[in-house]
Design a protein around this nucleic acid. Structure first.
Length: 229
DNA sequence: GCGACAG
DNA sequence: ATCTTGTCGC
């Protein structure tokens, strides 16, 4: 009874060897597909990670929503002991184990997953959303609040305004104003969809907040903001 | 060599 | 990410 979230350990294992991890990222980045290729969207999921016990425990949250109404259908949490520190560029090795465990607990496999973090807008083209997409072969979108790498021109101030995020002469993402006047989001495809579709989906899943509903709900669950406020 | 650096 | 109240502004 395997699910798409039972991943071969070697595809995301952390052994303390940074150069090795970077080489693995380059190999996996070559498998990323930026062509739109997914069945009708009925179920969408949002995932995010938070920490407890002063960082000793990694807490991943996954929320399953109806793609048409954005109504949450299930919310799950997975807690695992933290195994590695935060290293810029290697975030997925630190957070994916818990994320996969959370996703495996959902009652259904989503046709699309929005991840808090970058997709291909990464030094080696493999942010956490892209890493998750490649190892599960599911469509994913990266929704980040800060830039990891790349440059861009000024962005308009109205919701929907956008400008491409460039790196080494290539577009790696979109700086998108998801709400009037607030700091823009960095949206990049993770796997099996285009830059245009990634932006289109993020806007379509927005409910008046900065973050699209899937990620916003997962964020609250992961940070335990749902019970405190 | 000197910064920058998702969460 | 996380420690944290009130406060400025639409």
């Amino acid at each position: 009874m395997r699910s798409p979230f039972d991943i071969a350990p070697d595809l995301l294992a952390w052994d303390g060897d940074v150069p090795r991890a970077r080489r693995l990222q380059q190999e996996l980045a070559a498998r990323v597909c930026l062509q739109d290729a997914f069945a009708p969207l009925r179920r969408v999921a949002g995932v995010d990670v938070g920490f407890e016990e002063d960082g000793a425990v990694t807490r991943a949250a996954a929320v399953l929503l109806d793609a048409a109404t954005m109504q949450p259908l299930a919310e799950v949490v997975a807690r695992l002991p933290t195994r590695m520190p935060y290293i810029p560029g290697l975030l997925s090795f630190r957070e994916l184990p818990a994320v996969l465990q959370a996703l495996a607990q959902l009652p259904e496999v989503p046709e699309l997953i929005l991840v808090d973090g970058h997709g291909v807008a990464h030094p080696r083209g493999l942010g956490i959303a892209a890493h998750l997409g490649v190892v599960t072969d599911l469509p994913t979108i990266g929704v980040a609040k800060k830039i990891l790498v790349g440059n861009h021109d000024a962005v308009g101030l109205k919701r929907g305004d956008r400008t491409p995020l460039m790196h080494r002469g290539r577009m790696i993402g979109t700086v998108l104003r998801s709400k009037d006047g607030i700091q823009p989001l960095i949206v990049s495809p993770g796997h099996r969809l285009s830059h245009a579709t990634a932006v289109e989906r993020v806007l379509a899943y927005g409910r008046g907040y900065k973050l699209p509903e899937p990620t916003r709900l997962a964020d609250r669950l992961a940070s335990r903001r749902d019970r405190r406020t």
